[in-house]
Each structure stands twice: as C-alpha cells, then as structure tokens.
Design a protein around this nucleic acid. Structure first.
Lengths: 106, 106
DNA sequence: AATATACGCAACCATTTGGTTTATCATAAT
DNA sequence: ATTATGATAAACCAAATGGTTGCGTATATT
C-alpha cells in the first residue's frame, strides 16, 4: 500500500477536503456535509491523508478536528521546483524559435 | 476513466518518466532501459501521460520521441498557489505561538 | 441510567490500476 | 523480398481503490 503525498492528492475528493480544511479545521461529519458521500467514506479519506501526514487530528471530546499540515504540502512544491527552472527560463520559446528556423531553412 | 494531471503524477514510475524527458525528449525503448519493466508497460504510461496532455509525441520514422509539455505542469503549480499563500505568511508560527500561550495559561 | 451523537473499524463489492504475455503493424536495414 | 526493429493494441491477471453497510465504542445530553 503506497502512501505518499502524490497518491493522496490524486483523488478529487481528497483535494477538495484539503482545500476545505486549509481554511479551517473541521470534523469528519462537518466535512461529509459538503459531499454526497457517507461519513465513513470521508473517514477513509481522512485516514489516507493522515497516513501520509498531510493532515493532523486534534481530538476534542467526542469530536475530531482535522487540520491541514501545510508543511507537507511543500513536498509537492519541492518536486515541482526542478520543472519550475525550465518554465521560468525561456527554454520553450527558444525551442519554438529554433524549430521555426529549421523549417525556414528546408 | 479519470485522466487528469494529479492522477498522472500519482504513479512514481510516471513521475520518473516526466523527470527523464524533462531533460531530453526520449523514445519509449530508451525510457524503458531506465526501468526494470517491459517496453509495453512504459508505452501504457506514455499513453496516460499523453491523454492528460503532460507529454507530446514527436514521430520520427519508426521511433517516437516523447517530449514534456511543461505548460501542463503549471496546472499543479496553479493548484498549489492557494496553499502557498498560507505557508508564505507566518500563520503557522502564529498558531504555534497561540497554543504555547494556551499551554502556559493552564 | 438511558439515549443520542461522533467516530472509526471490518467486511464486502465493483471498478480501476499497473503489470504481464501474445499478436499486429509500420518503418529500416540486409 | 526478407528480416529486424520500434512501437501500440488486446487479453489477461492480481492487487489497490473508493465506495457501501453494519457494528462497536467513547463522549455528551436528558
């Protein structure tokens, strides 16, 4: 059972959950109200998100407030970093220019 | 069959492929040499990456060179944007400070 | 003390995923 | 013309995924 950030954010429901609790910590039931899905299904998503440490559980009485672990989101950013170098320089435009020249010389 | 960037990068092999061809366009066979996996399996990954427009096929004779569509990678960056706001401000440190104060007041 | 609420776990199920092997097709080389 | 090479497609399979329902348990409420 693979359990990393990338697999976690692959599911659209989980991405929506992340966006929800980024604003404010929420209980599973409260989250479930936002989806047409059982509370148990949400619980499973919360488990996956917890396992890859994208969220943290904060027990308060019989309720559990899940909070986004924003630090972990940076993992995605870190992975993107290598590509950001490419798209921030104008390599692409340069490529396009070069192939245009090649075409013209034919 | 869902086919979006997030589902595409969920698989570690596909992430490795993306990193490979980011440097230089490559044929499926050349890519397959980097993995202990059949050429056909790589082809399937290329198909998925193509379907979500993360890569582009460049046919040259009987070979196909796959190239990263760097623009599409920005989709991930765009999604991250909303969270970047959170981690770039010092909300987290503030939270930590507040809970420390709460602890001390007990 | 009895009841209601919030939650997670287990068992189950259909579908998807990620690989395999075999077959087919197109281009290149002999 | 024949053979070799590069690639996809199809059929198949085990495992993972994403949901369900039913149940047990802890905490609140009455």
């Amino acid at each position: 059972m693979r359990r990393d950030v990338f697999q976690a954010i692959a599911d659209p429901t989980r991405r929506a959950i992340i966006a929800l609790i980024a604003i404010q910590a929420m209980s599973p039931s409260a989250i479930a109200d936002h989806f047409s899905m059982s509370r148990q299904a949400i619980s499973k998503h919360m488990k996956i998100l917890t396992e890859c440490e994208l969220i943290r559980a904060d027990h308060q009485g019989r309720e559990i407030y899940y909070q986004l672990e924003i630090e972990k989101m940076k993992d995605i950013d870190k992975w993107l970093e290598q590509f950001r170098k490419v798209w921030e320089t104008s390599f692409n435009q340069l490529d396009d220019l070069l192939s245009t020249i090649k075409q013209q010389n034919k």
